[in-house]
């Protein structure tokens, strides 16, 4: 196992505010670490330390084995950073922005132009390539910003809330980009306040709150913390709902609920319950349109861990 980056006991204070109160983060090469937490939890501070933009008050962090404080130059050769606000130069065109980064990464001007064109094409910005970035929409700016962080083909990519403020379709696009980056062997640190986003992209998730990691694990492990799985059944023929309800009640030993028309759900504690339900429904000859075992959402996980809903914290 080799770690792409590792942070141990990071502490950072700004005046009287403690942004990080001793945080540990690590990700294996080629994986996605999701750092999940509400606004003000310390996500951005942690990213800025790992990106050599901030020095920790105590603790240490390495990227590719290089210390972020003592060997910042080596770290900068490995990383790409995309902030939560798009840090592109508004007066420069899309091409000029990317060529500049390429030149600063020691590409020859010709190669920098080729790389810029490649990235603009990948991010659907070719048509806007020669317009100043200030004429771009929010989503386009975000894409240009991400493209700028990929010019040097970084081994480790920090995505600090890459989809905050994007509409759902654009979010899906961004998720596709993240998946293809990992497919190419890069390691990604993704911070997000969206629980479904961490669930969809991350191999492992560190949940942080008030500058501390309050839980760490795979998405599935975290969901188990919140306990309980739920079976959902939607029979093809709504007339047979009562029969399904009887089967579920018998297996789960509790009354099913109906969250929507023609759908029944029941929480279960036993791993063997789901196969039993499947078998009995089949034996009864009931056709189903939908039959699933659902883990609890990460919203529920967050609530279990902190005792308060994540959304309430975000609003604060």
């Amino acid at each position: 196992m080799s770690l792409a980056f590792q942070a141990e006991g990071l502490v950072k204070r700004f005046g009287k505010t403690t942004a990080l109160a001793g945080i540990d983060l690590a990700a294996e090469q080629g994986s996605v670490l999701g750092v999940l937490g509400p606004n003000g939890a310390g996500k951005t501070t942690a990213v800025r330390i790992l990106a050599t933009l901030l020095r920790p008050d105590s603790g240490r962090a390495t990227v590719g084995g290089h210390d972020v404080v003592k060997d910042a130059g080596a770290v900068r050769r490995l990383i790409g950073l995309t902030g939560q606000y798009a840090s592109v130069d508004e007066d420069l065109t899309g091409t000029q922005n990317l060529v500049l980064i390429g030149e600063l990464l020691d590409l020859r001007r010709r190669d920098a132009k080729v790389r810029a064109a490649e990235l603009l094409d990948w991010f659907d910005l070719t048509e806007a390539a020669n317009r100043p970035a200030k004429t771009y929409s929010g989503g386009m700016r975000r894409r240009l910003d991400l493209a700028a962080s990929l010019v040097g083909r970084p081994a480790v990519i920090y995505l600090d809330e890459p989809t905050t403020g994007l509409d759902p379709a654009k979010r899906e696009d961004m998720w596709g980009v993240v998946r293809s980056l990992v497919g190419d062997g890069s390691t990604v640190l993704l911070t997000t306040q969206y629980l479904d986003e961490a669930d969809a992209l991350a191999d492992e998730i560190s949940v942080i709150d008030h500058g501390k990691v309050i839980a760490h694990g795979t998405p599935a492990q975290l969901k188990q913390i919140a306990g309980g799985q739920t079976i959902l059944v939607r029979p093809t023929d709504p007339a047979r709902l009562a029969e399904v309800s009887g089967i579920l009640a018998a297996v789960a030993q509790r009354e099913p609920e109906s969250p929507g028309r023609g759908v029944l759900t029941v929480p279960i504690d036993d791993d063997r319950a789901f196969p039993t339900v499947v078998r009995r429904i089949e034996e009864a000859g009931i056709g189903v349109m939908e039959l699933s075992l659902r883990l609890p959402s990460l919203d529920e996980v967050f609530f279990t861990l902190t005792g308060k809903p994540a959304t309430a914290e975000v609003a604060a």
């Binding site: 080799s2 490649e118 094409d121 083909r153 970084p154 190419d184 062997g185």
Partner: peptide, 17 residues
């Protein structure tokens, strides 16, 4: 965002751009 670009595998130990 449909086309993919050629990207060399990026090991963490790479010397730089």
């Amino acid at each position: 965002m449909t086309t993919t670009i050629e990207r060399s595998p990026a090991p963490v130990t790479s010397a730089g751009p």
